[in-house]
Design a protein around this nucleic acid. Sequence first.
DNA 1: CGATTGCTTGATACCTCTCAACCCAGGTGG
DNA 2: CCACCTGGGTTGAGAGGTATCAAGCAATCG
Lengths: 234, 234
Amino acid sequence: MSTQLAVSAERATAALAAAAGSPWALQPDDAAARSGTPWSTGSVQHFTQDREIYGEGDHAKLFYKVVSGVVRTCKFLSDGRRQIDSFHVAGEFFGLELGQEYSLSAEAVSDCTIIAYRRQGLESLAANDGALSSMLLSHAMRSLARAQEHSLLLGRRSAVEKVASFLIEWAEHSPDRDVATLAMTRHDIADYLGLTIETVSRTLSQLERDGLIDLPTSRQIRLKDLDALRELNA
Amino acid sequence: MSTQLAVSAERATAALAAAAGSPWALQPDDAAARSGTPWSTGSVQHFTQDREIYGEGDHAKLFYKVVSGVVRTCKFLSDGRRQIDSFHVAGEFFGLELGQEYSLSAEAVSDCTIIAYRRQGLESLAANDGALSSMLLSHAMRSLARAQEHSLLLGRRSAVEKVASFLIEWAEHSPDRDVATLAMTRHDIADYLGLTIETVSRTLSQLERDGLIDLPTSRQIRLKDLDALRELNA
DNA sequence: CGATTGCTTGATACCTCTCAACCCAGGTGG
DNA sequence: CCACCTGGGTTGAGAGGTATCAAGCAATCG
């Protein structure tokens, strides 16, 4: 279940700007100066683990920012096979759509807190606000680059390479640079990498036997030999 | 090799607008009214089959529109493995980048004619031109949706499903709705679907034996049983 | 022609999946 | 407190799908 409460301190503009580290990005200061636009405030929502936030095809009237926890966006085939497109951590946006419907589903990987913004009017606003549309474009282009990188992984990398790549990617999200603290299950990892649970598990065990990683707990992975892991990524 | 000649009749604005069929799109009429902007004209170039148009990492000072022929954009691993991101046909843009470098390589699938536009100043122009940035955003978001669909295919579909999906997708580009006329080799198809040449060939032969398609020539594929092919796509 | 290129087909290897058993930690209820 | 159950994770045996290696065919082109 999700609880909602109004929050006025949150301005999506500033948040979007902070997330955009590119020539297209707006300076946070400029953004902070803009206020009172229809979509500048959002409502805080909580979702418990594995709760659906929205489904593919739902009417896309809201977009979201993660405050805490992790969210996955994914697609399903009719027989239930799932492909996870990405994991979203604190500060990241998801659910921004061009059309009327979400093109992915979104679910809570862990218990999480997110802020929902009305998409209403964002299009027309963007048409008259260069800074805002730069931020949106920047966001879209970075997502696109990520998706293309992910396609290379799914189409052309072996199981070890996929897992190594995932570990390196995830370790960068962690406080410690060489310890990946996982919020997700083996099932999530498998569906992100286009593998099965068993293959992910076996591959991690193998990497541990080979001395590239340590597995103190199933959700804590220490990257012992970062160079060797990166080598698998070449 | 590529030949260049200046062309003033081509306006990227109008072209982008025509390509954008969405709420964000600019009307061609409005676009035609705008002219004389620094990037409004491009130079026509010709590339012969398999020529590189640009490489991943090259300085991205131009973007392109296909006039005739087919272009592929792709990524490579260090050992040569290749993943094709997409095929671009007449009227489609490619090479639009956020950063300073191309994130993909682009190559001519067939002999082709393309128009190159200077990216120079596009960012700042977009910041002051709502219609233009809407078009750019629209383009980026449609590319993103395509990439996400492609990830699902690469990560979760079997070889037959991949091939069936490709045939249906490509047949829509063809004059005849139920005949796919291929511009690309089996190698291109394989690298687009995350398979090998041999598996693509075998799968096509199997589909023919099963009566779902005809293969009058290796580049002409008639979709005999579109329903059955769509079924494989579910 | 001979050489080359794209494609098909066959035999076999191997990587990943499938199915199954088992372990472990945590939660629940008697 | 302990028995039990559950869910996530690991491991093993075997199957299966796709890759690899190799040969052959047809069309194209010097």
